[in-house]
Design a protein around this nucleic acid. Structure first.
Length: 770
DNA sequence: ATAAGTGACTTTTTT
DNA sequence: AGTCACTTAT
């Protein structure tokens, strides 16, 4: 109890009020840096310690995976004795999957359903509109997903708000039917299907409402209509509901975020109590003034003033720089001067902006970590591997079937694929059965039959390896036997890429999951729902400067913040500059970015910048710069001259050695960036991969786990022979019944005494000879 | 059926 | 700069 009082004593009046309220629905309007996460975490602790709730009675929903992770950590800090797994602290989407896995059959899904990302959705739409191009279909697909986020069905009259396409409703309906036939879901489904399920199925609704007695929603201003609808279903007559948000920080309108959700909350939940947190504990007065002066230009907001007792602090600085390299060099020199890498963050509007910083920081051995921007799972070879795995768990996945049945080319062209697919209606959509029937019906050529059969067989073999042994082995075998490894080895040799290495990393990451279909599903779920953070270090921990998009900084704070690329069409984004709503959203993003800073705020505006591979000169400074009160900012430099030197190195060295603003000269020699840092570990060697994949995969995925490698070449020298007796810790004793050489790799089949049969790559088999 | 080569197009933020 | 769709040659 003393502990509880201790926690409460750290709160101000409003915060305490928010924690103690446990009767009425609660709406907390919390300004930036007003301690809302502390309120939520304390509230969770209070519910458990004082109100006797079980951790599992509590559902805390946030908007991003990072926020969820952070909240979980902070709750566990307060309640170290609790089991981390008993808490449901999740994103809306991961909560949706959690529920759907439990009730997949009730929801009409394949038990092994996987989640389609946007490109999968597009491919699916293409299977139904084969004569249309991706270019034509993409905007339609985007509109469909947006409509779903807005809670609209194909039959809603409001569909016209989403798309001008005359047949839009029809497209939407066709897409939905296709998705249901496949048995998979898209992101929006993770919200809408649970909602529908709770409407239609009493048992599910009762289960949820009985289980969750306390529901807390963070970043509520970013919820969309579909999520609000789900929330309404989750709240039963006895559920305590509390939401926390700030309309000034709503930055996901593009994804359907609806500020109205805040306004209508009190209307939907009767007797709502509203509490405003207006005290900022994070930033200096100067930083807060700057942020306030900019956000005040938004007309569509609730006017409010944040107050702080913090010091005035140093004045935020704006640097005019030549181009993105000069920008990086200037940031670098400031970083070195401050020598406070772990508490510094570089914030940019688009992920592509990170590369100039990566290049320079790598070169100068400054430790850094990139949050998000993970294109890893979008890479061709990785998507191929994931496609095979998705097909593996859901044999009705027509999208991934089409992607992989003839990749690498195995003589099954469009005609043959059509022949196979004509049997799909007979097999309830199961592609493997369809292949079998096609082969039996002898509609395929001999070569085609053989290879299609081999495709199915390889899948089945991997299945037994996964169920009986190691997930890593099974996946490795699958990729290898499908010919992907050989295919990408050739590609690598030709193009100097490192695709096989990336596949290795993927296998390594998978190996940490349980060896079963369930483990594989868990892995696939993790990579689709959290593709920005998987394998990366938590930004709150570890060494180095944080490189991060402004969107990703929600809920984070840093002593020193560097906002880069303050130029029209970049920030505010050109895509969002057409209307006032778009500009206001960008302005809120600026507000979010600026209020991440505790002590020092630096801003940068370049005169030229390379955009989409082209040099753009005479860039216009961001309008947000002009919206800052002159007294709140110190401007350094004016419109700089156009650089003369052209080569990267010449330019970089020019800036680095002299430093345009002379920042380096006195500091650089004395303050070599030591700071107890291991460069090798913290700084990915970004040029290991030459093909514009800025991060070395190994730094992103489960560092240091180097169990698997696809060998480049290896002579077959069999170590097992038929008849050998072997033992596996889990499976017991067995006999080797076959041993074959597969491109230099020995593949053995073991028949266990239990009757089970398993295949292994002998080199990796966990077997002892008897 | 496939490999290689050409040309057009991209263009934000995240679950 | 890179990807993707399309063309042409084998």
């Amino acid at each position: 109890m003393a502990k509880m009082e201790d926690w409460l004593s750290k709160l101000n009046k409003e915060q305490k009020e928010a924690v103690l309220e446990n009767e009425h629905p609660l709406l907390v309007l919390a300004g930036a840096g007003s301690g809302k996460t502390r309120v939520i975490t304390t509230k969770i602790a209070y519910c458990i310690k004082e109100l006797d709730y079980n951790p599992w009675n509590i559902l805390a929903v946030t908007f991003t995976n990072k926020a969820a992770k952070e909240m979980k950590e902070r709750v566990l800090e307060m309640l170290p004795e609790e089991d981390p797994n008993s808490f449901n602290i999740r994103t809306f989407h991961s909560f949706g999957v959690w529920l759907l896995r439990r009730f997949s059959s009730e929801a009409g899904l394949q038990p092994g359903f996987t989640i389609y990302d946007d490109s999968d959705s597009l491919s699916l739409l293409k299977t139904r509109y084969s004569s249309m191009t991706a270019k034509e279909l993409r905007p339609i697909m985007k509109s469909i997903l947006k409509a779903k986020d807005m809670g609209l069905t194909p039959f809603s009259t409001k569909l016209s708000e989403v798309s001008n396409e005359p047949n839009f409703a029809r497209f939407y309906e066709v897409y939905e039917n296709a998705l249901r036939e496949v048995g998979n879901v898209d992101f929006a489904d993770l919200i809408t299907i649970p909602t529908r399920l709770m409407d239609e199925n009493r048992e599910v609704r009762d289960f949820v409402q009985r289980r969750f007695k306390v529901i807390l929603v963070d970043e509520y201003q970013d919820s969309n209509v579909a999520q609000f609808e789900m929330l309404k279903r989750l709240v039963g007559p006895d559920t305590f509901i509390s939401v926390v948000g700030d309309d000034d920080q709503s930055i996901y309108r593009f994804r359907g975020a609806e500020i109205q959700n805040i306004l209508s909350f009190p209307k939907v939940f009767k007797d709502t109590k509203s509490i405003v947190l207006g005290q900022n504990y994070r930033s200096t007065k100067n930083i807060l003034n700057l942020a306030t002066s900019v956000i005040a230009h938004n007309t569509n907001r609730h006017p409010k003033v944040l107050r702080t007792d913090n010091q005035i602090g140093s004045r935020p600085q704006l640097y005019y720089v030549d181009d993105e390299m000069d920008e990086a060099a200037t940031v670098y020199s400031l970083l070195v001067r401050a020598n406070n890498f772990n508490n510094s963050a570089i914030l940019y509007r688009t992920n592509a902006q990170s590369s100039a910083f990566e290049t320079l920081l790598t070169k100068r051995h400054i430790p850094y970590k990139i949050v998000g921007a993970l294109k890893f799972y979008d890479r061709e070879e990785v998507k191929d591997a994931l496609a095979l795995l998705q097909l593996f768990v859901n044999s009705r996945d027509i999208v991934n079937f089409r992607r992989m049945i003839n990749k690498p080319a195995r003589g099954i062209g469009p005609t043959s694929i059509k022949k196979i697919e004509q049997f799909l209606p007979d097999t309830n959509g199961d592609v493997f059965e369809a292949i079998d029937i096609a082969i039996e019906s002898k509609v395929l050529s001999a070569k085609c039959s053989t290879n299609a059969k081999q495709f199915v067989t390889t899948m089945k073999e991997s299945y037994s390896m996964i169920e009986d042994g190691s997930l890593g082995d099974g996946v490795k075998y699958l990729l290898d036997k499908m010919g992907l490894i050989t295919y990408y080895m050739n590609e690598d040799a030709k193009n100097h890429t490192f695709k096989v290495d990336n596949l290795n990393q993927l296998v390594n990451a998978i190996s940490e999951y349980q060896s079963s279909t369930a483990g594989l599903l868990a892995f696939l779920e993790e990579v689709t729902l959290d593709r920005t953070t998987i394998g990366t270090e938590d930004p709150a921990q570890g060494d180095g400067v944080t490189l991060i998009t402004m969107h990703n900084t929600k809920g984070l704070e840093f002593e020193d913040v560097y906002i880069v690329g303050l130029e029209e069409s970049l920030f505010p984004s050109g895509m969002n500059s057409d209307d006032d709503d778009g500009i206001e959203e960008e302005r809120r993003l600026f507000y979010v970015a600026a209020t991440r800073a505790r002590e020092n705020l630096y801003m940068f505006c370049a005169k030229s910048r390379r955009v989409w591979g082209r040099m753009e000169y005479d860039r216009v400074p961001s309008r947000f710069i002009d919206e800052i009160n002159a007294r709140d900012i110190e401007v350094i430099g004016s419109r700089p001259r156009t650089p003369t030197a052209n080569s990267w190195d010449a330019k970089a060295n020019k800036y680095l050695n002299r430093g345009q603003y002379g920042l380096l000269d006195e500091k650089r020699k004395t303050h070599a960036p030591r700071h107890g840092v291991h460069h090798e570990r913290s700084t990915p060697n970004i040029y290991k991969n030459s093909n514009n994949f800025p991060q070395d995969a190994s730094s992103l995925i489960h560092k240091g786990f180097k169990k698997f490698e696809f060998e480049k070449k290896e002579a077959g020298n069999n170590s097992y022979s038929v008849g050998d007796r072997v033992n596996n810790k889990e499976k017991g004793n067995g006999t080797v019944i076959s041993s074959v050489d597969n491109r230099g790799r020995e593949v053995i089949t073991v028949e266990y005494d239990s009757g089970k049969i398993a295949k292994y790559i002998s080199k990796f088999a966990k077997l002892t000879k008897l």
